[in-house]
Design a protein around this nucleic acid. Sequence first.
DNA 1: ATATTACATTTGTATATACAATTGTTGTAT
DNA 2: ATACAACAATTGTATATACAAATGTAATAT
Lengths: 151, 151
Amino acid sequence: MKELEDILKTSKTLPLSRKTIINVFLSNTYFKDEMLSVLKPFDLSVEQFNVLRILRGQNEKPLNLQDIQDRMVNKMSNTTRLIDKLLLKGFVERNTCAKNRRKIEIFITQDGLKTLSVLDPIIDDIEQQMTSNLSQTELEQLNNLLTKLKA
Amino acid sequence: MKELEDILKTSKTLPLSRKTIINVFLSNTYFKDEMLSVLKPFDLSVEQFNVLRILRGQNEKPLNLQDIQDRMVNKMSNTTRLIDKLLLKGFVERNTCAKNRRKIEIFITQDGLKTLSVLDPIIDDIEQQMTSNLSQTELEQLNNLLTKLKA
DNA sequence: ATATTACATTTGTATATACAATTGTTGTAT
DNA sequence: ATACAACAATTGTATATACAAATGTAATAT
């Protein structure tokens, strides 16, 4: 993993705020790349995977697009198109809501559930690995700092 | 800013590693959105802005595409196309390298430099603002933890 | 009852990114 | 000198995201 100093070769000392922001960008890339390399063989992007997990969390109850969008970690401008791709792969189903035909209900399929259950231990593993350089105490500190940061 | 609990309504307690990863994703989005809203009026994306700063750091000396890519915070699969857009806006110039015609040298223009000099204090400001919930000590802690995380 | 407004999703356009294939140039091996 | 490998950038295809406009449905106001 590249360090700040390696990347910003020509720079003087950066203000702490900028260093922090850059470090968050780098950490984000680090996590996303690792996740993607695990999900790739399952033909899923990180975002698609997260939506599938959201749908599973509903225990077979459907969610409409806005509900999904609200629960997404990376706010998605285009849930429609993301769902389109999950549909093509057979991981979700889509129905117009009977009570309010403006809304679209989305379900996870058996195939989607099966894929998630295969992925669960793999993802747990990579998440552990990616954070293994920090102790539990340090992880808690990091969490608290990040939460406070954007409070 | 949304909290983890608000987003993941249906979830049980998450493992600390997952919480940390999600928190980094959220922080990344937070920073990027704020930066973008500042850069938007200047017709620049966050990534384009960063490349311009890299080029300025060279003090008028040119960089080829690979050098730029190495210095970029968000590794860019397509520096070519990013530079294309900076070119259209007149912020950079592009020449084939005489010594090695495979390489393309890229310079920042006066217009690019002028735009950066206008942006400098604005960016400093927003960076301060975005991190103002943390003390200097906390920012240092956060930096150290993030560095250690991906060491 | 019709017009207007608000709601929910879709579509279009643009940028950033991932990855593979292609093009053109240079260096090397024989 | 020619063939082949390595290098540097470009192009093509796909996904995610930002934002605006368009479509279709429901609620309301008169």
